[in-house]
Design a binder for these strands. Structure first.
Lengths: 273, 273
DNA sequence: TGTGGAATGGAATTAATATTTCATAGCCTG
DNA sequence: CAGGCTATGAAATATTAATTCCATTCCACA
């Protein structure tokens, strides 16, 4: 038997990465698929894996042989071993975690993961369906959607902008650095709509812009963190999202999920699905 | 299909325990074996399992049919699912949340919440502590941190920029619309560091910039989604983050958590806490 | 102790899955 | 641009594994 033949997933992975540049196109395709979806390899059949990776079954066998295995079956067994062992190591990890054997950086990561998870749970539990429907209604009617947010909330609108573009929904991101925002907003009419996002301490610009647009008769959908938020006052529909925080930085996960929901739901609403 | 047919390992286990006393001798034997060695059932073949449990293959089939499955194969798939889903908890949570009678928009929201939760769980499980430590080490040493990302990944760097500013860590967001990026990057030296983020399909600019900076000797910390990502090649340290997607839009939650961890951990590292 | 019915073992059958083969397409090199 | 080589796709084949079937055994009850 070939002594270089990898017996465990880690060394197999390294072997693949090492040979990466020397792989033919289709083999590289299945290699990437394998490392990205190891569970699929462990359980699937040659045919099913090949289909979902978009190659022929024979390519899978060639991939295995390329690495020195004598066929798909023996390659697959490495992926299966990995799952068996993971059961153990995962439990070990948890044990270690309880024992306090974790690094400081890991603790920070876990903190962010936990606050994000908590926020997501909260938004899913607390969000009112009727509110969501009304907001989508407003956005679906709009000719152009104006996106207003600063500072912490800005990443949300920038991802919304990306999504709206993909969904072919016309939008304007109010973010000009050159002080031209007032002009841009002056184009907005009651036939458009605004998504304004701001959390305490409220960026004054966002609040001002939302009020300005609202006074122009443009309907505002706001996402904020409290009923007392100044944003709530100028909004036609507003959502209260409570984000947990970690190390002084609030998670954006829940707001992000809500924002993306608004984008996708608006698109679906328009397409009449 | 039989409605009592157990879909997951837990209910299958309960079903077996419940029927325990009514089982014929050989069936009982294989039942006990199955609950004691679930991994064997998941991976073995009917023949191999039968042999190590000391029964005939046909007994295995009878056991499966006794429980209402139509054959060994469908029984086995329950045992396989169990291994895939070390991430059971989030599904339970969501199942509990869905009380039925949900609107379409609510379904979209739940989809985003679910994919975000799944991504977070995956990153927490899969991320290697050593890798994290090394990345933080690199960033902590840097005089200026350059942030490079486009399109989908851009919101991540924009939140990182916000956080780094708050933490008083010097950074430069490479995002100039005026085509001045090359000049900005030419200021970077090996004493600085880069955080580059890109997911498939990789924005070519991000990849090019990362390579350019790496060639200048600036250490690159990359966040990407596959070992085959072109970003991985120019990176000194790189993270693989698998984000689940919903309606064609990938969650950013896991990447966001990791990015914030890098920011905060770097600050703590510098402050010597 | 004989008889009927369920349980079991083992081999035959059928289904599935992996592997091989071969024809063709793409690509580099002279 | 030709010739040879490698890579790829598709289908045929071989292998392996699941399922079925039938003969036999075991056990309860008369």
């Amino acid at each position: 038997m070939n002594p270089r033949l990898p017996q465990d997933y880690e060394s197999l992975r390294n072997l693949v990465l090492e040979k990466r540049s020397a792989l033919p196109k289709r083999i590289a395709q299945i290699a990437a698929y394998a490392l990205d979806n190891p569970d699929e390899i462990a359980f699937g059949t040659a045919a099913s894996i090949a289909a979902s990776a978009g190659v022929q079954p024979s390519t899978l066998i060639r991939f295995a042989q390329f690495l020195g295995f004598d066929g798909f079956t023996s390659l697959q067994s490495v992926f299966r071993e990995r799952l068996r062992e993971r059961t153990v190591s995962y439990e070990d990890r948890l044990k270690a975690l309880r024992g306090g054997g974790v690094t400081q950086n890991r603790t920070i990561l876990d903190g962010f993961v936990e606050s994000a998870t908590r926020s997501l749970e909260a938004v899913s539990r607390a969000l009112d369906d009727g509110l969501l429907d009304r907001a989508v209604e407003v956005l679906a009617r709009a000719e152009t959607i104006y996106l207003v947010a600063r500072r912490r909330s800005y990443p949300i609108t920038s991802y919304m902008a990306y999504a709206l573009g993909k969904l072919k929904i016309r939008y304007t991101l109010v973010e000009s650095a050159a002080g031209l925002d007032p002009e841009i907003m002056s184009f907005a009419t009651p036939k458009d709509a605004v998504v304004a996002i701001s959390f305490s301490p409220y960026a004054s610009q966002t609040v001002d812009y939302a009020r300005l647009l609202s006074d122009q008769g443009v309907p505002v959908v706001a996402i904020t963190d409290s009923a007392f938020s100044p944003l709530a006052q100028s909004a036609k529909v507003w959502f209260e999202v409570a984000e947990a925080d970690c190390a002084g930085f609030r998670s954006l996960s829940a707001t992000m999920a809500l924002a993306m929901t608004l984008a996708v739901a608006t698109a679906e609403r328009r397409n009449g699905t």
